[in-house]
Structure formats: C-alpha cells, structure tokens
Amino acid sequence: MVGTAFTRAGYIVLEAENGNAALAMLADRRVDLVVTDIIMPEADGYEIILRLKQLPSRPPLIAVTGGSLRLRMELPGMARLLGAEAAFEKPLDLAALLAEAGRLIGAGRTETTT
C-alpha cells in the first residue's frame, strides 16, 4: 500500500522483504529517503536507523509502527531519538506520509545544491 502510494506520487520505489535485505540493498545504492517499519524480521527498524546513521551521507528516515497502543506510543519516540526525522503510526495517513516525504526529500536537495 505504501509503495503503491509513493509510485502513484511519481517516486521510484525499492522494496525489501526484511531488514537485512533492506540493509543489503542500501549498501550499494544512494536513495533520497528510507521509510522503515519498526517491527520486521531479521533486522528491525531501529537497526536500520542506527546502521544508516553511521553513514557519512545518509538519507532522511521515516519510521512506521503499528501494534498495541503501548507500542504505538513508545516506538515512534524511540525512532526519533535514534535518528529518524519523522515517525508515523499505523493505520497510516498516506497523504501526511507523502507530504512529509516530499518535505524531507526537498530539504535534502536544498542542502546538496547550496
């Protein structure tokens, strides 16, 4: 659903089936934005955030989480503490997610052209 929304908005989307696949994909590609679920197999979203944070030039990160009320309250704040620029709870407000993605990508382009 998220990938389809980004594709329809004109973005090129790369998808990974789990955290380790995402890390492998990002090891040899430069991307403008990473949207990661917090809870996923093999490497969770926190690991994605921490590993990408170590890169000298990393893309902006948006964390997404669902689950119990407690998890939805705690996980986005933790993702931001670890380095995510934004966090969204499921069910997602796709319009808000796309707006934030556009803002983050636009801010990155502004920084690189200045």
Rank of each mutant, 00 (worst) to 15 (best):
Arg80Cys: 11
Lys90Leu: 05
Val64Gly: 06
Met25Pro: 00
Thr112Gly: 04
Ala16Cys: 13
Arg103Ile: 00
Gly77Arg: 15
Leu94Lys: 12
Gly106Pro: 00
Leu104Phe: 02
Ile38Phe: 01
Ser68Leu: 10
Asn18Val: 04
Ile48Phe: 03
Val31Phe: 05
Tyr46Ala: 01
Gly77Tyr: 10
Thr112Asn: 09
Gly45Gln: 06
Leu71Val: 11
Gly77Phe: 11
Gly66Trp: 09
Lys53Asn: 11
Gly10Gln: 03
Val64Gln: 07
Glu42Arg: 11
Ser57Asp: 08
Met25Arg: 09
Leu61Trp: 04
Gly66Met: 07
Arg72Thr: 02
Asn20Gln: 15
Gly67Cys: 00
Pro91Val: 13
Gly102Tyr: 07
Leu33Gln: 07
Asp93Thr: 10
Glu85Val: 12
Thr113Asp: 06
Leu71Tyr: 09
Met40Glu: 06
Asp32Phe: 04
Arg58Pro: 13
Val2Cys: 12
Arg58Cys: 05
Phe88Ser: 01
Pro59Lys: 01
Ala5Phe: 07
Ser57Val: 10
Glu74Arg: 14
Arg8Met: 12
Val34Lys: 07
Thr113Ser: 11
Thr65Asp: 01
Asn18Trp: 10
Ala21Ile: 05
Gly3Cys: 05
Arg103Asn: 12
Ala63Val: 12
Leu82Thr: 01
Met40Lys: 06
Val34Cys: 03
Thr65His: 10
Arg70Phe: 11
Gly77Ile: 12
Arg109Ser: 04
Gly83Tyr: 05
Ala96Gln: 11
Asn20Leu: 15
Thr7Val: 15
Pro91Lys: 15
Thr4Ala: 10
Gly10Phe: 10
Glu74Ser: 03
Leu92Asn: 10
Val13Pro: 10
Glu111Thr: 11
Ala16Glu: 14
Gln54Glu: 06
Gly106Leu: 00
Leu69Cys: 01
Leu92Ser: 08
Glu100Asn: 09
Arg103Trp: 07
Ala96Val: 04
Arg109Cys: 02
Ala96Asp: 05
Leu97Tyr: 02
Val64His: 09
Met40Cys: 08
Tyr11Lys: 08
Asn18Phe: 08
Glu74Gly: 00
Ala21Gly: 02
Arg29Trp: 05
Met73Ala: 13
Ala21Val: 11
Glu42Val: 06
Pro41Tyr: 00
Ile38Ala: 00
Leu98Met: 09
Ile62Met: 13
Gly83Thr: 06
Leu71Ser: 15
Asp93Gly: 08
Ser57Ile: 06
Asp28Pro: 02
Glu100Lys: 15
Leu14Gly: 09
Arg70Asn: 12
Thr7Arg: 15
Ala27Ile: 10
Ala107Met: 13
Ile49Ala: 03
Pro41Cys: 00
Asp44Ile: 04
Leu55Ile: 01
Leu23Val: 14
Glu100His: 12
Asn20Glu: 15
Leu71Trp: 06
Arg51Thr: 12
Leu61Glu: 01
Gly3Arg: 04
Gly67Gln: 01
Ile105Trp: 15
Leu50Val: 04
Ile62Ala: 09
Arg72Lys: 09
Glu89Lys: 04
Asp28Tyr: 03
Pro76Gln: 05
Gly108Lys: 09
Pro59Asn: 00
Gly66Pro: 14
Ala95Ser: 11
Tyr11Ile: 03
Glu42Ile: 04
Ala43Phe: 10
Arg70Ala: 13
Gly45Met: 02
Arg29Gln: 10
Ile39Leu: 11
Leu50Arg: 15
Leu94Val: 01
Ile62Leu: 08
Leu69Thr: 03
Gly3Leu: 03
Arg103Met: 06
Arg58Ile: 02
